[in-house]
Structures are given as structure tokens and as C-alpha cells.
Measured scan of single mutants.
Amino acid sequence: SEYETMLTEIMSMGYERERVVAALRASYNNPHRAVEYLLTGIPG
């Protein structure tokens, strides 16, 4: 799925699956924002 592709691409940058899933959830599946959250911390 498109979601799995995003997940895999972000994980390939060296992040753990659960952190990527949390970041995508926080960003409403916006991959650019999710990466930003992984770099700066997930808000909330």
C-alpha cells in the first residue's frame, strides 16, 4: 500500500518502525511532516 511504501522509505532513513508509525499518525500520514517530527520530536 501507499502507507507501507511511506513507512518503508522513512524506515530506510534509520528510524524504527514504531517511531515512524507514531510520527505518521501524528502528522495524519503526511510523510514530510512525519520526518520533521522524527527529527524534532513528536508534539504532544
Rank of each mutant, 00 (worst) to 15 (best):
E2D: 13
L7Y: 03
M11A: 04
S12C: 08
R25W: 07
H32S: 14
T8I: 14
S12N: 13
E18F: 07
A22N: 08
Y28G: 15
A22R: 07
A34R: 00
S1A: 12
L39G: 05
V35A: 05
S27T: 10
T8L: 15
L24R: 00
R19I: 12
L7M: 06
E16W: 05
P43L: 13
E2N: 11
M11D: 00
G41D: 08
E16H: 05
N29T: 03
E2V: 11
M11G: 02
S27F: 09
A23R: 01
V20A: 06
L7F: 03
N29G: 14
R19P: 05
R17E: 05
T40N: 14
E36N: 06
E4N: 08
A22M: 06
A22T: 06
G14I: 05
S12M: 11
A34F: 04
H32M: 13
L7R: 01
Y37R: 04
L39I: 12
M13I: 05
A26I: 10
V35M: 13
G41A: 09
M13P: 01
V35D: 01
M11I: 08
V21A: 08
E4Y: 11
M6D: 02
L24T: 00
G44T: 13
E4R: 07
T5Q: 14
Y15H: 05
A34H: 01
T8Q: 15
P31V: 12
E2Y: 12
V35F: 06
E4P: 03
H32G: 11
E9V: 12
E18T: 08
L7P: 00
L39T: 10
G44I: 13
H32F: 12
L39M: 14
G41Y: 11
P31N: 03
L7S: 01
V21W: 03
E16N: 07
L38E: 00
P31F: 15
Y28L: 15
S27M: 07
E18Q: 08
G44S: 12
R33A: 12
G44Q: 13
V21H: 05
A22P: 02
N30D: 15
E36A: 07
V35T: 04
R33N: 07
N30M: 05
P43G: 09
R19A: 15
S1Q: 12
T40D: 09
E16G: 06
Y28K: 15
M6H: 06
P31G: 06
H32P: 06
V20I: 06
S27W: 05
Y37E: 03
R25D: 10
I42V: 09
M13Q: 06
Y37W: 09
P31W: 13
E36D: 08
I42N: 08
E2A: 13
V20M: 02
N29R: 04
P43K: 09
A34D: 01
L38N: 00
I42H: 08
R17K: 09
R19Q: 15
R19H: 13
N29D: 08
E9I: 14
G41K: 09
T8F: 14
V20R: 00
V35P: 01
I10K: 00
S12Q: 11
A23K: 01
E4I: 10
V21F: 03
M11P: 00
A26F: 08
P43I: 12
P31Y: 15
Y37L: 14
V20H: 00
Y15W: 10
E9R: 13
T5E: 12
A26M: 08
E2P: 10
V20P: 00
A34P: 01
L24K: 00
I10T: 01
Y28E: 15
E2S: 12
N30G: 02
G14Y: 06
L7A: 02
I10A: 01
N29W: 13
P43C: 14
E9M: 15
Y37G: 02
V20L: 03
Y15F: 15
V21P: 00
R33T: 11
P31C: 12
L24A: 01
M6R: 04
S1R: 11
Y3Q: 04
V21K: 08
E4S: 07
R17H: 06
Y15N: 02
A26N: 06
E2M: 11
V35N: 02
M6W: 11
P43W: 11
M11E: 04
E2R: 10
G14L: 05
L38S: 00
Y37M: 13
Y37K: 04
T8K: 15
E9P: 01
E18P: 05
T8V: 12
E4C: 15
T40A: 13
N30K: 04
T5H: 12
A34V: 03
T5D: 11
R17P: 04
R33F: 10
M6P: 01
G44N: 12
V20N: 00
A26Y: 08
S27Y: 06
H32V: 15
G44C: 14
L39K: 14
V21C: 08
M6A: 06
T5L: 14
E18S: 10
L24F: 02
I10Q: 00
S1W: 13
G41S: 10
E16F: 06
N29P: 05
Y3I: 05
R33E: 09
V20G: 02
E4L: 12
L24H: 00
Y28P: 03
M11N: 01
R33K: 15
E9Q: 14
A34G: 02
E9H: 13
G41P: 05
I10G: 01
V35G: 02
A26E: 10
V21L: 09
Y37N: 03
E16Q: 07
L39S: 09
G14H: 02
M6G: 02
T8D: 09
L38A: 01
V35R: 07
G14C: 06
V20C: 03
E2W: 14
Y28C: 15
E2L: 12
Y15G: 01
A22Y: 05
E9C: 15
E9K: 13
M13V: 03
T5K: 15
R33G: 07
N30I: 06
A26H: 11
M6E: 02
V21I: 14
V21E: 13
P43H: 09
A23F: 04
T8P: 02
E18K: 07
I42T: 09
M13F: 06
G44D: 13
N30Q: 07
Y37Q: 05
Y37I: 13
E36R: 07
S27A: 15
E18D: 11
S27L: 05
R33I: 15
L38Y: 02
T8N: 14
P31Q: 09
G41L: 09
M11R: 02
H32Q: 15
S12E: 09
S12L: 12
V20K: 00
R17N: 03
V21N: 03
M11L: 05
S27K: 02
N30P: 01
L39E: 13
S1E: 12
L7Q: 01
S27I: 06
R19E: 15
E4F: 09
P43E: 09
E9S: 11
V35L: 15
I42S: 08
I42Y: 11
G44E: 13
R17V: 05
R25A: 14
Y28N: 15
L38V: 02
P43A: 10
G44F: 11
P31H: 07
G44R: 10
A23T: 01
G14V: 07
N29I: 03
I10N: 00
R19V: 13
G44A: 13
R17I: 08
G41R: 07
S27R: 02
T40Q: 13
S12F: 06
R17T: 04
E9T: 13
G41T: 10
L7G: 00
P43R: 08
L7K: 02
E18L: 07
S1P: 12
G44K: 12
I10L: 13
R19G: 04
H32K: 14
S27P: 00
Y28I: 08
Y15L: 02
H32Y: 11
S12R: 11
S1L: 13
R33M: 15
L24I: 04
G14F: 05
A34I: 04
L38M: 04
N29F: 10
G41Q: 11
M6K: 03
S27D: 02
L24N: 00
A22W: 06
E18H: 10
M6I: 10
I42L: 11
A23N: 01
V21M: 09
P31K: 14
S27Q: 04
E36H: 13
Y3F: 10
V35S: 03
S1K: 12
P31R: 09
E4A: 08
L7V: 15
M11Y: 02
V20T: 03
H32D: 14
G14M: 03
A34W: 03
E16K: 05
R25N: 12
I10M: 07
T40R: 11
R25E: 14
G41W: 11
T40Y: 15
P31M: 15
G41C: 10
M11W: 03
Y15I: 03
R33V: 15
R25M: 10
A34E: 01
E16M: 05
S27N: 07
A26D: 07
E4M: 11
A23I: 04
A34N: 01
L7W: 03
N29Y: 10
G41I: 09
G14R: 02
Y15P: 01
E36Q: 11
T5I: 13
H32R: 10
E36Y: 12
E36K: 07
V20E: 00
N30R: 04
Y3H: 04
N29A: 04
V35C: 09
T40G: 11
L38H: 00
L24M: 08
P43T: 10
T40V: 09
S1D: 13
P43Q: 10
T5R: 15
A23W: 04
